[in-house]
């Protein structure tokens, strides 16, 4: 089935924005999408991959190494010449084994030639792209730990089965899940850069529009994709420009102060909140084509960057989003 065009996804603006921000600045550290089944979480994540500008990678390299990677990991990547390839998008199944994820001894080559070779896993495949895990809250804990560890260090170190391999694995982790079916541990949640909450659209008109679009896509996938190609192209250009602009943008003293004050006001644990908030605001400014990062950007992205970092009070029913908007209103008026 052809991927659903990103620009044809109705509503869910917060999720789409968070995904684009992660695409502009992968160092933000992943996006966690909370929401019910059938709200377009997977559709949006998969659509994003089809949208991104291609990358330059070493030809035939299983890790999709860039020039820098080639220099840093000479033993895993040869000196293949650079060719264009699509941004990888890896859809990790819930039941994936540790072997499949981090890679293992290549049984085929071992059988054929008795050679002890490393068969790269999903982490290698996701390098420089996206790793999407639906229902991450149902994933076994040790796998989540492992994923977050690699995502944070940008490197997969395999020391098992007599193998000793180190390869680059920088990717944007996108997790989705329904908190009604079990929650992620707070220490894992904190590792995600942004988190968004997706609700099923309650507006009848929006729901009808979605049905109409999906029916059109079912009836004629090629034609549908062609009709939305231009809109997708616009978003692609926006992301590409944002990426280029990112390095030139530095948040000013005032924005940093705002970020620190906001984090203190809502009681976000640790420094990660401030860092992510600052980075996300910068990525948003880049995406918008703004000349500098302003308070407006900060406020727009604050709920996504902070809502999963607030200390959970078991007895407090107030949602995190409410607490953040309240703090914003108090601080910035």
């Amino acid at each position: 089935m052809a991927r659903f065009p990103f620009s044809a996804i109705v509503a869910q603006d917060e999720m789409k924005l968070a995904l684009l921000i992660a695409a502009v600045d992968p160092s933000i550290g992943g996006v966690m999408v909370f929401g019910d089944r059938g709200t377009g979480k997977s559709t949006a994540a998969r659509a994003l991959a089809g949208l991104l500008p291609p990358i330059m990678a070493a030809e035939g390299c299983p890790y999709g190494c860039s020039k820098d990677d080639q220099a840093r990991y000479p033993d895993v990547c040869g000196t293949g010449k650079m060719v264009k390839r699509a941004v990888p998008f890896v859809d990790m199944p819930l039941g994936a084994t540790e072997d499949r994820v981090i890679g293992s001894l290549d049984l085929e080559r071992a059988l054929r030639s008795g050679e002890k070779a490393f068969e790269p896993g999903l982490l290698a495949k996701a390098h420089r792209g996206f790793l999407y895990i639906d229902e991450i809250n149902l994933l076994e804990d040790h796998l989540v730990d492992l994923l977050l560890d690699v995502a944070a260090s940008g490197e997969n170190v395999v020391e098992r089965e007599g193998l000793s391999v180190r390869h680059p694995a920088k990717f944007v982790l996108i997790g989705s899940g329904n908190p009604e079916e079990g929650e992620l541990r707070p220490q894992l949640l904190d590792r995600f850069g942004l988190s968004v909450e997706v609700r099923t659209p309650k507006d009848i008109e929006v729901r009808i529009e979605i049905m109409r679009l999906v029916a059109a896509n079912e009836a004629d996938p090629q034609g549908f994709a062609a009709r939305w190609a231009e809109a997708d192209e616009t978003i692609l250009k926006r992301v590409a420009k944002g990426k280029a602009r990112l390095a030139k943008l530095a948040p000013g003293e005032d924005v940093l102060r705002d970020a620190a004050e906001l984090c203190l006001a809502v009681g976000a644990d640790g420094l990660r909140g401030e860092l992510t908030l600052m980075r996300a605001a910068r990525a948003l400014a880049a995406l918008d084509g703004a000349k500098k990062v302003t308070r407006k950007h900060l406020i727009a992205i604050a709920p996504s960057a902070l809502r999963h970092r607030l200390r959970r009070d078991v007895l407090d029913e107030t949602g995190s989003t409410v607490r953040i908007t309240r703090a914003i209103a108090e601080l910035f008026g």
């Binding site: 019910d36 059938g38 099923t200 729901r207 979605i210 049905m211 029916a215 079912e218």
Partner: peptide, 12 residues
């Protein structure tokens, strides 16, 4: 019925 998948199935 909140799920959009169900709604889409109903149309089909």
């Amino acid at each position: 019925v909140d799920s959009l998948r169900a709604l889409i199935f109903a149309g089909e």
